[in-house]
Computed example of a mutant assay.
Amino acid sequence: MMTLWQRLQIDLPILQAPMAGAQGSELAIAVSRAGGLGALPCAMLSPEAMAAELAAVRAASTSPININAFCHTEPSPDPERQARWHAALAPWYAEFGLDLEAVPEGTGRRPFDHAACDALEPYRPEVVSFHFGLPAPDLLARVKAWGATVLSTATTVAEARWLEAHGADALIAQGLEAGGHRGHFLNDDLTRQMGTLALLPQVRQAVNVPVIAAGGIAEARGVAAALALGADAIQVGTAFLCCPESRVSAIHRQSLMSEAARHTALTNLYSGRPARGIVTRLMRELGPISEVAPAFPLATAAIAPLRAAAEAQGRGDFSPLWAGQNASHCREVPAAEVVADLSRGVID
């Protein structure tokens, strides 16, 4: 019987997690060349930028590629909530001598739409993955029409069943340990979500499509454990962040390889949705989860000037230092070496 990774035409059951803002085509190409499935995050890219990155991937590699997009609903403006958010950030704006009235507009992230589909279609990416559910049926049909395998993230058994029923070809079971944004979409109650080793076997039992394990896996022993619990493949993100092919800042890279990486938390302060990252000054002083943060992704705009001001002083106090709970294998080594380490002794 053909395995998922054979179906995806990759040599190893190792998928690189798409990490918007932290990587681009370079990391995706390196992982694909090493036998895994490289991923290109597109939620923060315009259709033109998306096409340019895809062109770079196709020019450098003939291996399959995973294109990742978000499926969130764009929020309606809420002036009262925005005013509360600005008031909460005002002391730090004063500290850095910044003008709150000059906060730029924009969301920084776009949901998957027909313009994005138009940009992707000429390249016919072999895998298209989604975060926060699935796109509208007409968009999903367009993606499937060119033969793409569709993946989406489930953080609960209920989400896994929903995704299978609505057309996902395989599921990413995202444990609570995973870095970056939670993929939840049916319910935002974080108490309903589990760690990878608890979630994975329950999802495996509940659905008939392939299941990919994600969250807290950073070495071959973790890969072996997930495979033993029924995973068809493994998705890894944090272990790739310090590779030379990633685009993380020097501040982020240093934090990942320091003791600070042992303390991560879910926070909605940087975007408006819970995402796991290394605890920063902003998270400590405002509380990692705050009701004053505007709806996703509107929180980003007012944080950006604070981030830039602090980073100019060499500090990550207001930077989203995304990381999972297991950064123990973050090393400045080529991505191909990370792929080899993940599969060593596990894959015959």
Score class of each variant (00 low, 15 high):
223 V>A: 11
223 V>R: 12
223 V>D: 07
223 V>P: 06
224 A>R: 15
224 A>C: 15
225 A>L: 08
225 A>E: 10
225 A>T: 10
226 A>H: 14
226 A>E: 13
226 A>V: 14
226 A>Q: 10
227 L>Q: 11
227 L>N: 05
228 A>N: 13
228 A>I: 08
229 L>S: 11
229 L>G: 09
230 G>T: 01
230 G>L: 02
231 A>C: 13
231 A>K: 12
231 A>M: 06
232 D>Y: 07
232 D>H: 15
232 D>S: 11
233 A>Y: 01
233 A>V: 05
234 I>G: 06
234 I>K: 13
235 Q>K: 02
235 Q>E: 12
235 Q>P: 09
236 V>Q: 04
237 G>A: 01
238 T>L: 04
238 T>V: 07
238 T>R: 10
239 A>V: 12
239 A>I: 04
239 A>R: 02
241 L>K: 03
242 C>G: 08
242 C>A: 13
242 C>S: 13
243 C>E: 04
244 P>S: 04
245 E>V: 09
245 E>D: 10
246 S>F: 08
246 S>C: 06
247 R>H: 15
248 V>E: 01
248 V>S: 06
248 V>L: 08
249 S>A: 07
250 A>T: 15
250 A>W: 02
251 I>P: 00
251 I>D: 02
251 I>Q: 01
252 H>I: 00
252 H>S: 02
252 H>F: 03
252 H>Q: 07
252 H>V: 03
254 Q>V: 03
254 Q>R: 12
254 Q>N: 07
255 S>D: 07
256 L>E: 00
256 L>T: 00
257 M>Q: 07
257 M>A: 01
257 M>L: 05
259 E>K: 10
260 A>P: 02
260 A>D: 00
261 A>Y: 03
261 A>K: 02
261 A>E: 00
262 R>P: 11
262 R>G: 14
262 R>W: 14
263 H>Q: 15
263 H>I: 11
263 H>T: 14
263 H>F: 13
264 T>G: 01
264 T>L: 00
266 L>D: 06
267 T>L: 06
268 N>E: 09
268 N>T: 09
269 L>T: 05
269 L>A: 00
270 Y>W: 13
270 Y>Q: 10
271 S>I: 08
271 S>L: 02
272 G>Y: 00
272 G>I: 07
272 G>W: 05
272 G>E: 04
273 R>D: 09
273 R>W: 12
274 P>S: 12
274 P>E: 03
274 P>Q: 04
275 A>M: 05
275 A>F: 06
275 A>Q: 05
275 A>T: 07
276 R>W: 06
277 G>L: 04
277 G>V: 02
277 G>I: 03
280 T>R: 13
280 T>V: 04
280 T>Q: 13
281 R>E: 12
281 R>S: 07
281 R>H: 07
281 R>P: 11
282 L>C: 11
282 L>E: 05
282 L>Y: 10
283 M>I: 09
285 E>G: 12
